[in-house]
Simulated assay, not measured.
Amino acid sequence: MQRRAQRVERDQRAKRLSRVLVCAAAVPVMLVAAGCSSDSGSGDSTDKAAASASASASPSPTVKAAAYDKLPEACKALPKKTLKDLVPESKSGKEGKSDDISTRASCSWNSLDNNGVKGSQFRWLNVSMLRFESDVTRGPGDRLAQEYFEKQVQEAQAVEGAKSVKTEPVTGTGDRATAVHYDLKKKEGTFKQQTVVARVENVVVTLDYNGAGLAGDKTPDGGDLLKDAKKAVKEAVEAVSAANGKGGGTADGAPSKPSKSSSKSPKPASKEASDEPSKGASASPSKKPAAKS
């Protein structure tokens, strides 16, 4: 009996020891599992953070470079023969003020052919050029130039006191060209005004040409003046292209259609526009016709 009791007690101790060993063996397994689970979560978090940072980082903005980076000398933009035809009595052009002639330039000419008691013929010619740089915040130079082109056409169409205003496309000149012509009556006589606006790449050329018969001389033919103005603006556009070592653009021949954006020109364009001659003022000479109008 005693031996049996000892054997039973020994068996019970062995079972308790076995249970302890099993539990002890299970603890590292649980720790390893917990450690793997913790590492896996940390890796997922790092990967997600890296992916988020990569998605939020955007490339630096870019914009198409402007085609033209310079302007010709404004007073030399037209051939001498053209000046002789349009402003025959002019001795030289008057260069407009500009703080940067590579972006804005202009020149004007006055001509008074005095025929004594028969009256006189007055002519006034002005060429202005405005070049736009490409800008990452405002857009490419050619688009900015197109907006300014449309604004110039609209301003020419809205000159106070203008009569019989007509607008027509001009083909074969730059990338886009439009002519606006009208009559402007002043006490000195009736002035025939021609304004031709052309865009070539990122440059806008505006040519104003008007004529009048003063002191009883006959009023010049508007059709002839318009023909001369179209020829002159084409030559000015070609001068812009030549100054940049390129050929002239090809006109699409379509009429200018004011867009919603054209009513609000970019800030620099507005600044430049304020420095250009007023269309209404250009059509009227001063009390002394030979002086700049």
Rank of each mutant, 00 (worst) to 15 (best):
K260R: 08
K48N: 12
S263D: 12
T171S: 15
K118E: 13
E168W: 02
T103C: 04
D69A: 13
Q146N: 08
S282E: 05
A239F: 03
N110S: 05
A158F: 00
P220C: 04
F132R: 03
K91L: 09
D175M: 05
S102W: 04
L71W: 00
A33F: 07
K15P: 01
F132K: 07
S90Y: 10
A74I: 13
V233R: 01
P289R: 02
A291T: 08
S56W: 14
A24D: 03
A158R: 14
T173R: 08
A50S: 09
N114F: 13
S134H: 09
A236P: 09
D183V: 01
S40Y: 15
Q146L: 11
K186R: 13
G213A: 04
T103F: 01
S263M: 04
A291C: 07
V153P: 09
E155Y: 11
S58H: 13
D183L: 14
A236Q: 05
A291I: 02
A177F: 10
A239T: 12
D252R: 03
G174Q: 14
Q193N: 11
P220A: 02
A77R: 04
T250G: 06
E155V: 13
A251G: 15
S284H: 09
A179V: 03
K227H: 05
D208W: 09
S106A: 12
V136N: 12
F132V: 10
V153Q: 06
D39V: 14
A243C: 10
V205E: 07
K271T: 11
